[in-house]
């Protein structure tokens, strides 16, 4: 008796019960502007009119003050500083790097909020304050998606000073 036939005649021990939900997601005005910009390789944040902090990605209103951001956008660099990191050893979907890989909180230059992404570096090299830059897909593959950035990669710059990112830890 083959293993498959045996499976078909032995007791049923496990029930597969997948759940799936289909949504039509609307990005809204502010995230749509952010996504249209990233389709052109630009990273847009927005500045709070109350305290001047720059939120990235851009969003409709300030979560601290509740004020709307209006139409002013701030273009950010694709370079930044690693605030924290973690080594991932379990597989996940839609990650451009092989296991084990490094997931990082990056503070983009000019932003006051962190971006969670992945880093292509030797596990023993990654550290807080490390300077990194985005690695983009080939230009012809850019769409209105954050997936245009494949991952971050270390760059040859001195580490950022702790004071410049400590509030984001």
């Amino acid at each position: 008796m083959s293993a498959k036939e045996e499976q078909a005649s032995g007791p049923v021990m496990v029930l597969s019960c997948p759940i799936s939900l289909d949504y039509a997601y609307s990005a809204g005005q502010s995230a749509s502007r952010f996504l249209r910009a990233i389709a052109e390789g630009k990273l847009l944040g927005q500045r709070c009119p109350v305290d001047g902090r720059v939120y990235f990605p851009s969003r409709g209103s300030c979560p601290m003050h509740g004020v709307t951001f209006g139409d002013d956008a701030v273009e950010l660099s694709d370079k930044g500083t690693i605030v924290t990191f973690s080594i991932v050893r379990v597989p996940s979907q839609n990650i451009a790097l092989p296991l084990p890989y490094i997931t990082v909180n990056v503070l983009l230059d000019g932003a006051d909020t962190i971006l969670i992404h992945v880093l292509d570096a030797k596990l023993e090299d990654v550290h807080m304050g490390m300077r990194v830059q985005a690695v983009w897909k080939p230009r012809e593959e850019w769409t209105t998606s954050t997936a245009n950035i494949l991952y971050f990669r270390p760059i040859d710059e001195p580490d950022a000073k702790y004071e410049t990112y400590k509030e984001h830890i």
């Binding site: 997948p18 799936s20 949504y23 997601y25 609307s26 990005a27 809204g28 995230a31």
Partner: peptide, 10 residues
């Protein structure tokens, strides 16, 4: 506003 299908499954 941009829209996209979003499929969530477990």
């Amino acid at each position: 506003a941009l829209t996209a299908p979003h499929h969530l499954s477990y």
